[in-house]
Design a protein around this nucleic acid. Structure first.
Length: 421
RNA sequence: GGAGGGGUCGCAUAGCCAGGUCUAGUGCGGCCGCCUGCUAAGCGGCUCUAGGGGGUUAUUCCUCUAGCGCGGGUUCAAAUCCCGCCCCCUCCGCCA
């Protein structure tokens, strides 16, 4: 959520941000109008309330019964005003909140301006693409051929976009998760075990609601929403907190399954394990001081790159342009791993500086020192990594000619296998 | 699922039965000052959050409103009375 005061005082900043994101600026005008009316009515309401408070106090002191009754009647009249103003202000408030919740974050000044993902900027390529002496197979052919990846049974169990892994592929996946977590822990991140469902207010705080309602799984009986990423509970951890300035930056990591209802056209971009309704992910998260968030984004990027370097998977780093930037993000880098079987660069990670956008929604603040005014923290999130796509990259890059897969060296002690066949 | 107890301004508590000097008291912690070889003790003052209005617009300031788990209700007036919900603790039942 953006700062209402900023919009009030410098509406052009917000208009400009929306324009750069290829979005309509009309919501800004609506917010300005609502805000002005709300403040006018609020002022009126508070004046009446002050009057009522004064009268009530006086009634308590007044001994004379008829005087008291006289004043009671005056307050009754005032209360009629208060009631209707309260209703009005409440409605204006709700509309204003809703409008603010729908407004995306303001892109950083150094984010390239562009209309959509075609204008994202590749800022580096790392690792040579492997030269194959044979035609590399896509994972969705090699996996089933080996008997360790089963799409039919996934559909049988849970419907489209689900799959089943088994044997060494499952083991590889488990080892990969373990290795990733250990990697982050070694670099100063604290691991969390988190609920895979959260309350609606936590979803709101993380910026998933109300905007992405259609993409979330929801238990209607219990106000429980399945997390679409560990970023959600990691943001919620400190909702409402006032953190100690000396404790920042907080570096967190967590493994969770992620549940996303993406209603894509059947067959479009859905082949294989790239886009399931459920997938595993190890997430990285930071809470930091505002002045540190840019550097922390770079730190996180290095932490993620180190994973791909160690796995020896060729990758490239893209900076997202304004037109492709996520709703809550001010600046994002995508890391794409090369998958030679399907011949695609796969987004295995996305690292974003969210600045105070989530902190404001979730009311997450810090004090620089005792007695200082609380300020909003900055939050950052990054995948480290998305598991299925990393599995694709491993399987396809490490496949060998007669249908077997080498296990990356760094994973061997975790997977307890050298090869999958 | 059942019975009982609880949720108050960082922490610990009082206030609730008997609605109004509650502008929520007290202790601890913390901040400022005084005193003081040093430290401690002692003494005095201060102490939360959000929002509106006014004055300056860099901060400070004045004033009002709201907040006692959350949401309703009664009343001129609610921490206090009533209803619903949430959470925590104890016991019972049930169940991995």
């Amino acid at each position: 959520m953006n700062d209402l005061r900023l919009i009030r005082e410098k509406p052009d900043v917000m208009r400009d941000a929306l324009a750069k994101r290829q979005m309509d600026t009309a919501p800004v005008e609506r917010i300005l109008a609502l805000d002005e009316e709300r403040r006018a009515k609020l002022s009126e309401l508070e004046t009446f309330r002050a009057q009522r408070n004064a009268f009530s106090k006086e009634i308590g002191r007044q001994q004379d019964v008829s005087q008291r009754e006289l004043m009671k009647n005056q307050v009754r009249v005032i209360n009629i005003q208060i009631d209707s103003l309260e209703t009005l202000v409440g409605e204006l408030d709700a509309q204003l909140q809703e409008a603010l919740y729908e407004l995306p974050n303001i892109p950083d000044a150094d984010v390239p301006v562009g209309k959509d993902d075609s204008e994202n900027v590749v800022i580096k390529n790392v690792g040579a693409l492997r030269e194959f002496a044979f035609t590399p197979q896509p994972h969705y052919e090699l996996g089933p051929k080996l008997g360790y990846l089963d799409f039919e049974r996934g559909v049988k169990l849970a419907g489209t976009r689900f799959y089943v892994t088994s044997g060494p592929i499952t083991k590889l996946q488990r080892g990969l998760i373990q290795w990733l977590l250990d990697h982050h822990i070694a670099r100063g991140y604290r691991e969390f075990g988190l609920p895979f469902m959260v309350k609606e207010e936590i979803m709101l705080g993380a910026g998933q609601l109300p905007k992405f309602r259609d993409n979330l799984y929801h238990d209607v009986e219990r106000d429980a929403w399945f997390v679409p990423t560990a970023e959600v509970p990691l943001t919620g951890l400190h909702a409402g907190d006032i953190l100690d300035g000396d404790q920042l930056t907080l570096n967190y990591t967590a493994y969770t399954p992620c549940f996303r209802k993406e209603n894509l056209a059947a067959g479009k971009d859905t082949r294989g394990i790239k886009r399931g309704f459920q997938f595993d992910k190890v997430e990285m998260y930071k809470y930091c001081k505002p002045e540190d968030s840019e550097q922390e984004l770079q730190n996180m990027l290095m932490d993620i790159e180190d994973i791909l370097v160690q796995l020896k998977i060729p990758y490239r780093v893209k900076q997202l342009c304004t037109g492709d930037l996520g709703f809550g993000s001010a600046k994002t880098y995508d890391l794409e791993a090369w998958a030679p079987g399907i011949g695609e660069w796969l987004e295995v990670s996305s690292a974003s500086n969210v600045r105070e956008f989530q902190a404001r929604r979730g009311n997450i603040r810090f004090r620089r020192e005792r007695g200082a005014k609380p300020e909003f923290v900055h939050t950052l999130n990054g995948s480290g990594l998305g598991i299925p796509r990393t599995m694709i990259a491993i399987i396809e890059n490490y496949q060998q000619e007669d249908d077997w897969i080498e296990v990356p060296k760094v994973l061997r002690e975790y997977v307890k296998l050298d090869m999958i066949k």
